[in-house]
Every structure is written in C-alpha cells, then in structure tokens.
Write a protein that binds this DNA or RNA. Structure first.
Lengths: 342, 342
DNA sequence: GGTCCCGATCAATACCTATTAGTCATTCAA
DNA sequence: TTGAATGACTAATAGGTATTGATCGGGACC
C-alpha cells in the first residue's frame, strides 16, 4: 500500500549507499562487495519487496526492454492473437514486454500509432499481420529495428527481416492431401483473387499437380473472398459444373461454406466429396463434423521468430532477411480416399 | 537516422534554455514567454522533428501513460481482441498506450507476468477475459488501480470496477427471439454447466418464459461445452426427444454444430427448425447460411469502459463498482415465425 | 531617485537507476 | 619506511524531462 520502494530506501535500510545496492542487485562481479554487506542488502531488498524500476533502468541504460507491436486485425480472427502470443513468448524469455497498438486504417492514425510507440522508446517494431499483405511503413525519421511478420513493407527498405508463411508449400500440401488419396476430379475454391496468399497457394496446387502428372487445366478453379458465404456459393457452382470428388478451399471458413452447400445438395462429406481447408482455424477446423483436413498457418512460430529477432543483438548477418515458415498439413477426417467410380 | 533529438538540442538550436523549451512545448500559460521566443522554439522543434520522450516524462512526473492489460485467451477467439481494441481506443484518446501480457495458466507465471507490468510502472491494470470467469488476482504489495473486464477477482478486494456482460438480459433476449415468433416447443442447448455465463443466460431464459406464461419445465434443457461438437450432439439428442421448432444455443459455435446435425436429419433451417446463437462471433454468425440470429457480446464496449475508467482521474465515487453492459439482440435469418403445426 | 513589481528567462534540482571516479584503510612488495 | 596495490565502499554524475526558485532589466509609482 505504500509507495514503491526505491533503491535509496533499500540502501538506507541496509546502511549502505545506493551505489552499493546497485552493485549487489545487479550481481556485478567486477566490483568487490563484502559478503556481510551483500547479505544485508539482499535482506533489506527482500524485506521491502524491492523491485527495480524498469523504466528508470531503461532511461539510464539508453536501451529499452519493450517491444512495439503494430498489429492488424486483432479483433477479427484469432490469428493475430496467436502471432502476438508468439512474440510475447520470445519477449518474456528475454525479459522484454510488449506494447501493442492496432493499426488504424487511415494513414495519419497509423503514423500516430507508430509514433506513440517510438515516443516510449521501444527497442524494436514488429508489424504483425495475420493476412499476408503489404503494409505501408511509417516514416519515422529515427532508426529503429523493424521486423515484418505476415506482411512486408510496401515502400522501400525491408527492415531486419520479413517473416512469411510458406504458402506455396502449404498449397502443395493441401493439394497432395487430396491427390495422394486418389482424387483427380478436383475443384479449387480460391480466396481473394490475386491476393498474395491466394496466388501462392494456387502455385502450390500447380506444383502438386505436376508431381502426379496432372495438367494445371485439369483442375477446376474459381475465386471467392475467404468468407463462409463465398465457399458456399463456389461449391454450388462447382458441383453444378461437374461431379467433383474433392474441393480444395481457400481457408477453413470457405470449407465450412462448402460443407453447408454439399449438405444442401445431399452429398455426404467426406463419403462422397472430400473437403480440404486451410488455416487450421481455432475452434473450427478441429471441431467440425467432419473435422477438417487442413494446412496450419504457423502464426505462433512466426511471432516467435519475430520476437527472437528483436530481442537478440542486432546485426547477425548470417541469417537470411526473408524467412519462410513451413505450413504443416494437418490430416483429419474430411478427406478420405476416393471411392470407386460409380 | 541520427539519434533522437532531445529538449536540449531544441534549446540549443533556438538559443534558449531547456527550461524555456519545456514551458513552450507544454503550453504552460502560468509562465509568460515572449511570442518571438515561442515562435523560435516551435520552429526549432519542428525542424529537428522533436518528440518528447514519454518514458522520461513519466519518470519525472511520477505518473505513467501506460495501461497494463492481463489478457486471457487472446489466441483462442477474437473476443479478447475486441476487448483489447476497446481498451486501446480509450487509451489512445487519453494519450495512453497499452502493454499486453497473456495470462499464463500457472500461478507463478501469472504473478511474474503481472510484475513485469508493474515493474514498468503502469498506471493501472486491466484483467481482460472474454470468458466470464473468476481470476485469481496477483498480490502485488503495491497499490495499483485495477479493473476487471469480463471477469472478477476470486479473492477479496474488487479493485475499482468489475465490468461484465449482462448475460441474464442477453439470455432473455435470445429466448424472446424465438418466443416472440410463436415458438413454444423449445430446446435450450446450454454451454458448460454451472459456468457463470451459462447460469445467467439460462436465468434469462426463465424470465422470458415467465413473461409469455410458460413454465420453466416446458423447455427441454441439456448442457455441452460451447464447442461445435457439443452443439451437434445435443441437437441430435434433442431432436430424437421431441419435434422442437427452435433451438436456443449456448453460443454461435454450438449453433453451428446444431445446424450441421439438423442438416443430417434433413430438417430445413430455418424453415423447419429455427436456431438462436449467442456471441455474434466475427466471421461466423453474420456469414452463416442461414445467418444467425444471435446476441452480441459487448466486448468492445467493455474494453472501452475499462480503459476509460483507468485513464480518468481516480476516485469518482458516483459511478457504480459493478457495471453490467447490455448484450443486444441481432436479428438475422436463422429464426423465423413458427410454421403452422402439421 | 529609489522601491516595487512584473515580464522573461535560466540555473539548479529531482525522478530512479547505472556507472565513473574517487576516498580511505589496510596489506604487500621493495 | 615509503610506495603501490588492493579491498570495500561512496560521492557525484548522467539520462531526458518538469518544476522550483532564482536573476535581470525595465517600467510604474511615490
């Protein structure tokens, strides 16, 4: 209930100077302190419940123990949360803590948000976005370590690192989940057209097709907007077109929409039609009936990498600037081997 | 690219003392400054791109412009994100910024997380949880303003305010959504048994029943765990029991499970069976086919209130300690007037 | 002409900590 | 016996800012 004890309080209590307290509590070995004195200091500190004032420490040291996160879509999907959690994990391990600001849509708002972090002297900046998109970096005028996680700088200088999911490989795995089980009549229900993630995942699809000797045009394709509704509509369109045995969807929500459509058309899932998702969305992919075979987006790992980068000493030029994090395939019930042709 | 300019730099550049710069930039009216001098200072500040060092300001002032958020489930659902967004909104409006730590499950981890915030001298602490649960408050030993948003202190002292969703009223509205459209054969598919949110929502159901002259036992009830799967299972059980015309679900995910089950049983939704959700979950309730009639959890508003509380001067005893935030009904397509009995 | 006050500005100090440069015994080497 | 070295500690300063208490010149007043 009283004010926070300072180092001076501890010093007074132990009958030594503040300097000595600082030496003892920082465990400096290059300055000799008598064992008895050390004991008294530690005792006083414990008694008063002393905790160092990190803000003052940072000010004095000219360093900082705070990471700034400029996040995006923290309130839309849990993905941003997973990424932030990864960053926090790395931050904590290094004694750092995170300041988070959500990136406003308007430019001035965004700049001001970034400035509010810089004004607090953050050690580094992480632009964290769950959707793989370009972001316009704020012109800060001051040199600050910057890492992009799930996004990349639209203008010029790349900062220290750009961390992205390996969507090409992920797309390939998603396609293989169906191809490896004998499916050849396949529809690709893509997400937003020409968005980077969509393009990459479709490229992975093409790779997978080539691997099993299929031509790209052997796969029916259409594009939605990653919503449940677009999954529903595209699935209906697709099934009106041909008797596909597997639908490869842009994300889990589109896969959910597809399942709803297939239900309406009285196609059993996965008995008659297999469905592949993407994202491994929490509380959706695993719980669905049938549970989705899907590709996990490594948001947590991406955050972890971003955090580790900024909490480690700068300028280790051995590591690459552009980091692609693998997206593992998660096999569940929604994909089964293709049934014998009727 | 050079180091950040300080007030001394500005002073030197304008040919005045640091004191004068401080007076000008803080806009103090009680200290007279010659217009010409003021102009020179502002000019120098603009030229150098000076921005005050908030950490140093806070240290000097003995106050703080940082809010600490102890969050829960930031990576599970987007609800926590919405709440954080609300807090941030209030924080920004008052020139504050937020530090966020996710609450670890283990007690030591949690205490250490809270301490890491206090060590940075946050102005206040917000325990933010999307699920209405009790949390064990960390014994800090130092007086710090504390607000609970979506949760409440398990042990003793309540802090400044406890902000909760009005789940009783929400439950009532959910029930009325069905009752007002003539439904009387109703099943309540509750969430986790005896969890506070579940209990409150069911109490709202009872109130609504009483309002239309129904006895509590006229509603069939069962309890799950807020998962898609439990919604699916309970819906099957319910429909095997009786020909219900409306299912009132514990949350939107259970409603989704129920829809999947109803599809399998070839019940049209909402033609034959209406479904009511809860939460108004992003990217689910609105996009579903049919879109869910549901009750919105006011996480954003709760965060806003929490943030406003901590950024406003302490000790305004007129406002209540326990704040219930309304949960509005969102009417969409999944509930229709009951069809004539066949 | 001296006093008082006021406008304008600045030097000095404090916030809490880390670090540099001491101080003061005591011991050791020469 | 002197000097140097060492051990144990402290005074002073810095880091960027806010604030208190000067300083200083000039105009008003008696």
């Amino acid at each position: 209930m009283p004010a926070r004890p300072t180092m001076v309080d501890v010093a007074r209590h132990a009958g030594v100077s503040q300097t000595t307290v600082s030496f003892v509590l920082n465990g400096r070995t290059d300055v000799p302190v008598a064992p008895e004195t050390r004991r008294r200091v530690l005792e006083a500190a414990a008694l008063l419940g002393y905790r160092p004032n990190r803000a003052a420490q940072d000010l004095k040291r000219g360093s900082s123990s705070v990471l700034g996160i400029v996040s995006n879509g923290i309130a839309s999907h849990p993905f941003a949360g997973r990424m932030i959690l990864g960053i926090q994990k790395a931050a904590r391990a290094a004694g750092y803590v995170c300041m988070v600001v959500d990136m406003p849509d308007d430019e001035e708002g965004r700049d001001e948000a970034v400035r509010s972090l810089l004004d607090r002297g953050v050690a580094g900046l992480i632009y964290a976005s769950p959707a793989t998109v370009p972001v316009r970096q704020t012109e800060t005028g001051v040199r600050v370590r910057t890492v992009f996680s799930g996004c990349w700088p639209e203008n010029g200088e790349p900062g220290e690192a750009v961390i992205l999911p390996n969507d090409v490989e992920g797309g390939r795995l998603a396609a293989r989940a169906a191809l490896d089980r004998g499916h050849r009549r396949i529809a690709f229900l893509g997400g937003t057209y020409q968005e980077q993630a969509t393009v990459d995942r479709e490229r992975g699809l093409d790779l997978a097709c080539a691997e099993v000797g299929m031509a790209p045009e052997d796969v029916w394709r259409a594009y939605g907007d990653y919503s449940i509704d677009s999954g529903y509509r595209l699935a209906r369109t697709a099934m009106a077109e041909d008797e596909f045995t597997a639908l490869i969807c842009g994300n889990d929500r589109m896969a959910l929409g597809a399942v709803l459509a297939l239900h309406e058309l009285h196609y059993d899932v996965p008995g008659r039609v297999s469905v592949v998702g993407y994202d491994d969305q929490e509380e959706l992919a695993e719980e669905m009936r049938p549970a989705f075979t899907t590709v996990a987006l490594p948001h947590y790992e991406m955050g972890l990498l971003a955090g580790e980068r900024l909490t480690s000493p700068p300028g280790s030029p051995t590591v690459p600037e552009r980091i692609l994090v693998p997206c593992p395939l998660v096999v569940r019930a929604s994909v089964v081997p293709v049934s014998a042709p009727s």
